[in-house]
Each structure stands twice: as C-alpha cells, then as structure tokens.
Design a protein around this nucleic acid. Structure first.
Lengths: 96, 96
DNA sequence: TGCAAAGTTAACTAAAGAGTGAACTGCATT
DNA sequence: AATGCAGTTCACTCTTTAGTTAACTTTGCA
C-alpha cells in the first residue's frame, strides 16, 4: 500500500526535496510534525484509536493528539514508548 | 572498522540480546545511554571534540558530555540538531 | 613530570514537555 | 434529531530538559 514510514520519505513528501543537500535547514517544528505523521500512520496501521494507544502507554488521548499534530517537540523516550509499548512496533534510529 | 550505528546493534552490544523478543522492557535510561553512545561514535568518526560540536550547535561541551553519557532523556529536536547541524550526518528514523 | 587539551560533574535558572480534565467539533449510525 | 465514538483544543500543574558557569578529573604528549 506504499505506506510512508521513514524520515527521508517524509522529507520528500512534505518538503518536496530530492537528495540530501538541504536537510540542515529544517526546524524543530517541522521535525515534530513529520514524526507525528509517522506515529499516526503506524497507529492506524495497528488499527488503534488515540484513546487505546493512550491507555496502553499510561497517558491520555489529548496528549496523543498533540503529538500526532506536531504541536510540541517530544522526548526520544516518549516516542520510543509509544511505538514500542503502545504499538508493538520497533523504532529504528541510525546515524548515516 | 565495524562501527556500530544502529539501534538494534546497540541493543545487542549492551544487552546481549538476540532477536527482538524482549525489546519492550528497556527503559528510558537505557535508551538515553544507547543514543549517547551512538552520538559519541558519530562524533569521533567526524573527528570533532565535544567542545567543537558544542560550538557548532550553540551549546556547551558540558551538555554534550551529559548527553553522551546518557545522563538525561533528550528531545528529538536536540538529537536531530546535534547529528545534522553539528556532525553533518543524517539522522534516520523509521518505524518497523 | 608537568602542561594543556579534552572530558566530566555539580549547581543553578528558564523554558518547555509530560500529564491531566473538560469542553468542544466532526462524523457515522440508528 | 439524537446518540456515541474519535479526535482536537484549551488551561493548568508538575517535572524535566536545555543552557550555562565553574570546578574538577582524565588523557595525551613534549
């Protein structure tokens, strides 16, 4: 179904980039937004509501909504918790 | 030189894991530590000192040290800034 | 050995995330 | 129309990161 799950694909989708030449200029707000979209896609793929994901990770649906809409920067541990504990998926991070 | 750069490799290196069966039990402290090691490896590969990385990203070497040693959880934007702006490398995040 | 560079730790402040409850919107379905 | 479900937004508190200074330790080398 051609689902978008990687950082690079999001860069292309939301900024129309090609290649890597101008990566450095993206700001934190844009970063939070892209990660939020990634989370939302993964949640929908897991067929969970925001409320279900919230309950699984010990938080509230209002907070999940905020993250998915990129309303705030988030801790790495928070993102990790939502993906791994909440969705049962794995968060892959690497430096290239 | 067999450098470790991915999350999964760190899980194996520091926790002796094989496969993915027990990923969920790792806590935030452990996560911060592993990310810190990844950052340090990437920084050394870029042949930069903590002080140089700090200056490039508008912070202090004391803060870089704290992150590399996993002393605190960090924002995704902070990690991104250090990797992309500071080291000129790319931070890859995906959900598997 | 002694010096300088590199790295660590503690203490502090300001800013922001994490967590929460409540009210609100939009959308189906009956 | 009315009910219920999913999601959003606001307001608020509490906790923590980000940023900084200064002092200390470790490392590498002349």
């Amino acid at each position: 179904m051609n689902k978008i799950t990687t950082f690079e694909e999001h860069l292309d989708k939301y900024h129309g980039r090609q290649g890597t030449e101008s990566r450095a200029k993206f700001d934190a707000g844009s970063l939070a937004f892209r990660l939020g979209v990634m989370l939302q896609e993964a949640r929908k793929e897991a067929k969970l509501t925001q409320d279900e994901l919230a309950k699984r990770t010990g938080t509230k649906k209002s907070y999940i909504s905020r993250i998915e809409n990129g309303k705030s920067d988030i801790q790495l541990s928070t993102f990790y918790k939502l993906i791994e504990f909440g969705l049962g998926k794995s968060l892959n991070i690497s430096i290239g």
